[in-house]
Design a protein around this nucleic acid. Structure first.
Length: 299
DNA sequence: CCCCAGGTCGTCA
DNA sequence: TGACGACATGGG
């Protein structure tokens, strides 16, 4: 990978396995905007990131090499070998199609606390509304970040959320999930659940620990493990993945147990990454079909 | 009015 | 254990 410093920006000249549209729209990150000039803006590490891509050239705007190497290199999982990963999960025709369709998806390495709250919000909810709720959560309770003409809000820290009452949570549109968020804040804030410990635990132990939080079941825990702890072997089975497994792969009696076994057998330590490509492909194509149905061709 | 959304909880057999 | 309805809210 060739990195270049240019007018205060960092360029990757020959990016492979890297597509910012597919990365951002694959349902793993809820906090970002895309401008009309195709530049994505998000905030992490207390900083605002603006990133753009033209073919194989990726630009990280207004970043020094030092910051890039310390933060964004890690955030975009550039320390992972996607050559090997993609080769390993390319097991069959269905998967091949998903890999081609979602070419360049990478699993971001996002903040554990943010993933916990975000995926509690995600349950029985749709992605546009999840994004909206999390945006409001940041604007109301997070720290303001100002860089030049850009304003963003950081995801609220544990300490910032400890001051918020359950009623205040409800007001931002969380629905019945307000008590779940309150429980997470309480357990993590009081040290009943220790995030630094969880980071060191093996995956099943960490999963059990996460599930002590009210509102965190198997699926939400799996998303936290995959997106917040880079446990690539974990394959969250939501409604879409269940559908793919049962309808396309013919897994019988699909449930948490059968889905897990199938994914582990088929993709092993990269089951979570395989899942992300399948999820994206399935959901995008479903959306397209829905549009075709609702807008019949004008003859 | 219906159904659904990156599900989980409590309850009842 | 396993099935099943309830749960807030907003979009289609």
């Amino acid at each position: 990978m060739q990195l270049k410093e240019d007018k205060g920006n960092i360029l990757i000249e020959n990016a492979v396995h890297f597509d910012i549209d597919h990365i951002f729209y694959s349902g793993q990150i809820f906090r970002f905007e895309k401008s009309t000039d195709n530049i994505f803006t998000t905030a992490a590490y207390g900083r605002i990131l603006k990133i753009g891509q033209k073919e194989n050239q990726v630009t990280f705007y207004n970043v020094t090499m030092q910051e890039f190497e310390r933060q964004w290199f890690h955030f975009f999982a550039l320390d992972e070998n996607y050559d090997e990963i993609i080769r390993a999960v390319n097991t069959d025709e269905i998967m091949l199609r998903a890999l081609e369709y979602g070419r360049g998806i990478r699993i971001l390495k996002q903040d554990l606390w943010e993933m916990m709250i975000s995926f509690i919000v995600s349950q029985n909810n749709n992605i546009p509304r999840i994004k909206k709720i999390i945006q409001t959560l940041c604007e109301n309770f997070g720290s303001k970040i100002v860089e030049g003409n850009d304003i963003q809000f950081a995801f609220p820290t544990i300490a910032q959320l400890e001051n918020i009452t359950q009623d205040e949570f409800k007001e931002i549109g969380l629905g019945y999930r307000d008590s779940y968020i309150a429980d997470a804040v309480c357990k993590v804030g009081w040290g009943e659940i220790d995030l630094e410990m969880i980071k060191k635990m093996d995956t099943m132990q960490a999963r059990a620990e996460l599930m002590k939080i009210k509102g965190v079941g198997g699926k939400v825990a799996d998303c936290i493990l995959l997106f917040g702890l880079s446990r690539y072997e974990v394959c969250p089975h939501d409604v879409w993945v269940k559908r793919i497994f049962s309808e396309k792969y013919g897994v019988e009696k699909i449930c948490e147990k059968t889905g897990y076994e199938f994914a582990r057998k088929k993709w092993g330590k990269y089951a979570g990454i395989a899942q992300q490509y399948l999820f994206y492909c399935e959901r995008e194509n479903y959306k397209k079909q829905a549009i075709e149905k609702s807008e019949p061709q004008i003859l």
